[in-house]
C-alpha cells in the first residue's frame, strides 16, 4: 500500500470542561509518510498527546478527518476502532502501563490473545519480541521485579509483538534514567531503521527528538515549526 501512513485533514479538537470549551487542536493538517519517524514537541497543552490519541483511535476529533493506514477512523464504530487498534497500533506509554499482576511473558502475550494464533504460535511471537528487546531471561518476572528501563522494554515488546502498522510513543523516556532512555531510544530507532516501522513519538526531550526524521513543534494546537533531519 502506498500513500501516507497518517493524514489529518482540518482536524479540530475541543474538550469541554464543565460549561467551558477548551480548543486543543485547530484545523490541523498533517501527513506522515510510511516508515517515517516523527517527533512531536511542544509545551504542555499544545495538543501533542491529543494528536497521538486521535491517530491511535482512542479519541475522536470534533471536526475534520483522521486517516490512518488508509482507514478513515471517523467511519469506525467503537468495536471497529478496538479492532483497528489491535491490528494497526503499537502503544508505548510514558509509565509503561504493564499489567502488574501478569508476568513479562503474559504482558507481551496480552495483545496476541486478540488474534487467532494458537498458544504455540503466540509463544513463538512472544519469544521473538522479547529477543528484540533482549529480555528473554526475564520472561517470568513481574513488572515490580524489573527496573524502569526493563519495564519499558517489555512494553516495547508488547507493542511490537503483533507487528503493527504504526507505533505511537507518548514520552517513552519520560520516566527513565539517562542510560535506560538511551537504550529505549536505540530500540525505537532500530524498529524504524531495521524494520521500517512508522513511529510517532511525543517528547519533551530534544535529545530524544533528534532520533526522528522530522520534528514538529506545536503551540496552542497549531503547528509552528517543522524540522527535517538528515539521516547519516
Amino acid at each position: 500500500m502506498t500513500g501516507p501512513i497518517i493524514r489529518l485533514e482540518g482536524v479540530t479538537k475541543v474538550y469541554r470542561r464543565g460549561s467551558v470549551d477548551v480548543p486543543v487542536l485547530q484545523r490541523l493538517d498533517l501527513e506522515v509518510a510510511r516508515g517515517e519517524f516523527l517527533a512531536l514537541m511542544g509545551p504542555s497543552g499544545s495538543g501533542k498527546s491529543t494528536i497521538l490519541n486521535l491517530v491511535s483511535g482512542i479519541d475522536t476529533p470534533t471536526d475534520g478527518r483522521v486517516i490512518v493506514a488508509g482507514i478513515d477512523l471517523g467511519d469506525l464504530d467503537a468495536s471497529a476502532l478496538a479492532e483497528f487498534r489491535s491490528r494497526h497500533i503499537g502503544f508505548i506509554f510514558q509509565s509503561y502501563n504493564l499489567i502488574p499482576v501478569l508476568t513479562a511473558y503474559q504482558n507481551v502475550e496480552l495483545p496476541l490473545l486478540l488474534t487467532d494464533l494458537t498458544r504455540k504460535e503466540r509463544r513463538e511471537h512472544v519469544l521473538a519480541a522479547m529477543a528484540v528487546v533482549a529480555l528473554t531471561d526475564r520472561l517470568d518476572h513481574y513488572p515490580r521485579q524489573l527496573s524502569g528501563g526493563q519495564e519499558q522494554r517489555v512494553a516495547i515488546a508488547r507493542a511490537i509483538v503483533t507487528d503493527p502498522t504504526l507505533f505511537v510513543a507518548d514520552e517513552p523516556t519520560g520516566d527513565l534514567d539517562a542510560q535506560s532512555a538511551t537504550e529505549v531510544l536505540h530500540l525505537l530507532q532500530r524498529l524504524h531503521t531495521e524494520f521500517g516501522k512508522s513511529i510517532v513519538m511525543v517528547t519533551h526531550d530534544p535529545h530524544a527528538a533528534e532520533r526522528a526524521d522530522r520534528i514538529l513543534h506545536l503551540e496552542k494546537g497549531v503547528l509552528v515549526e517543522s524540522v527535517e533531519r538528515k539521516r547519516p
Binding site: I58, E83, S86, R87, F91, N97, L110
Partner: peptide, 14 residues
C-alpha cells in the same frame, strides 16, 4: 483505571 485503559487501548472490547 490505567489497566482498564491499557487493555482497551490494546484492542480489548468493553
Amino acid at each position: 483505571a490505567k489497566e482498564i485503559g491499557t487493555m482497551l487501548a490494546l484492542g480489548f472490547r468493553p
